[in-house]
């Protein structure tokens, strides 16, 4: 069942928490701080710790948002979970490429492909 948080929509996919952003712009620090807090809680209470972040609705993001994702990745991995990203639009994917974070994050073109990859070893 979907749970509506302030800035995130969270769904349990069975072993994987699917998180979708409510905001189309993940830019300013206040917004990012709130998202970071909500994501932190999701990771803390998740029994498995696998997280799929869908950027389906996201049109803008800043370097502060990238920093938030790096911190989140570390948290997820501390819990022996895996973090995957999906549905990143071409403009935003370019931001990942410029900063070379596309090499650090496990990025998939769609939720379905990301979900399938969790099944792989």
């Amino acid at each position: 069942m979907a749970e509506q948080a302030t800035r995130l929509k969270v769904s349990d996919l069975g072993g994987v928490s699917l998180v979708e952003f409510s905001d189309r712009k993940i830019l300013d620090e206040l917004c990012i701080h709130e998202i970071q807090e909500e994501l932190g809680k999701i990771v803390e209470k998740g029994s498995v710790g696998n997280l799929l972040l869908s950027f389906k609705n996201v049109e803008h993001l800043s370097s502060a948002a990238l920093g938030m994702l790096i911190t989140l990745k570390k948290k997820v991995e501390e819990k022996k979970g895996r973090l995957k990203l999906s549905d990143i639009n071409p403009q935003i994917f370019e931001v990942f490429k410029i900063t070379r974070l596309n090499k650090i994050f496990d990025i998939h073109p769609s939720q379905e492909k990301a979900r399938a990859s969790f099944q792989e070893a």
Partner: peptide, 21 residues
């Protein structure tokens, strides 16, 4: 340079790089 080893996984320091890009 935030893309260099040792800096790539730091959460800060990408703003100026993006502006320049």
């Amino acid at each position: 340079d935030p893309t260099q080893p040792g800096y790539i996984d730091r959460p800060h320091g990408r703003g100026i790089m993006l502006m320049r890009a």
